[in-house]
């Protein structure tokens, strides 16, 4: 069997958007192989229409295993369920998201099924002669792109970053085969228990999942000025990022730090304001689709890596950007 599988993600009664992105990645691979695209969903009971959305976004088959223990991630439990499915059905390829879930479960599973796993792929294609998965990923701070194969072990496993591909256009009413997988109580791992979950306020989206990220650096000069970044971000519908200098000064929390010792992100738009573009910072944004920067020093490295760079005072430029958004609001 040459089936391509994706691991769908669930949170609070919803199927996470990244699942549909994974289906888009998987669809093109399944089409090159002439095989089926299957989504694995491990979740508590969930509305049928939500499960069906997986078909509408490209899945041919959905393996759905329901149990209340899938409410929160428990790597051992999830991995047991996946291992059993994988052993029974031997998929050719298994893709997951490079999220806190995918990055935890898939390595755990890779050991159990004795196969390799390639993290954070930016390109996945099928090698014509061999039908093998070619997995391309940035390495060494994004300085090189490595192409990796898993020639002998199955499934060939890889993770891809959220927002690195658009979901396919939803085909309302598209159908597929739904297979319910019975939950085996032996899978349940009791050693770890989630006691409480705190969910961020609505607009504080994580920088890894955001399509657009506006980041501020030391050029903002002080904490109060950092507000400017949040305002521009909210105009653009973007998440807020920061350089390490900004984080170390306590202007914003570590979860917003972009770079080598922060997060590596691949948004469609990355806007760097008052950030010099040190190698360690650039390491986190090399795979962004478009980079825009605002900096008053024309020799800053960030300028060289930008698609569009404004050389000017960030306070004046950002003030003008806000005004322009205001004007557009009035006219639209």
């Amino acid at each position: 069997m040459n089936d391509v599988w994706i691991l769908a993600e669930y949170h609070k009664g919803m199927i996470k958007e990244v699942s549909y992105e994974l289906l888009a990645w998987g669809r093109s691979l399944a089409d090159s192989l002439g095989s089926s695209l299957c989504a694995v969903l491990l979740s508590p009971k969930i509305e049928t229409e939500k499960v069906n959305s997986l078909f509408e976004y490209g899945a041919d088959v959905v393996y759905h295993c329901t149990d209340s223990s899938f409410e929160f991630l428990n790597c051992a439990t999830f991995s047991c369920a996946l291992e059993s499915l994988v052993r029974e059905r031997s998929p050719h390829i298994l893709l997951g998201a490079a999220t806190t879930t995918g990055r935890s479960v898939l390595p755990y599973l890779a050991v159990k099924v004795s196969s390799g796993l390639t993290a954070d792929c930016t390109s996945l294609t099928i090698e014509k002669e061999t039908n093998l998965l070619l997995q391309t990923r940035p390495a060494i701070g994004g300085n090189i792109m490595a192409t990796i194969k898993t020639p002998e072990h199955r499934p060939q496993m890889a993770t891809v970053r959220p927002k690195s591909k658009k979901p396919l256009k939803r085909e309302i009413g598209r159908k597929g085969r739904l297979e319910s997988i019975p939950f085996d109580p032996l899978w349940k791992d009791e050693r770890m228990k989630v006691l409480e979950e705190y969910i961020h306020e609505g607009n504080e989206s994580s920088i890894e999942e955001a399509k657009r990220v506006v980041s501020g650096g030391k050029g903002l000069k002080k904490k109060e000025n950092f507000e400017l970044i949040s305002r521009i971000a909210s105009c653009l519908g973007a998440a807020v990022g920061a350089s390490r200098e900004a984080v170390d000064r306590g202007w914003i929390g570590y979860s917003h730090q972009v770079g080598l010792s922060g997060k590596t992100i691949s948004p469609k738009l990355y806007m760097a304001v008052g950030i010099s573009g040190a190698v360690q910072h650039l390491a986190g944004i090399k795979t962004a689709e478009y980079i825009v920067s605002i900096n008053n020093d024309p020799t800053s490295p960030i300028i060289q890596i930008s698609d569009l760079a404004i050389v000017g005072d960030l306070f004046t430029v950002c003030g003008e950007i806000e005004k322009e958004f205001e004007r557009r609001k009035v006219f639209s």
Binding site: N143, I144, A146, T147, H153, Q304, S306
Partner: peptide, 17 residues
């Protein structure tokens, strides 16, 4: 299990406007 088959320099420079 995984084998590196190719290494390339990543795109570093963009056509900065």
């Amino acid at each position: 299990p995984t084998k590196v088959v190719k290494i390339e320099q990543a795109r570093v420079k963009r056509d900065a406007l």
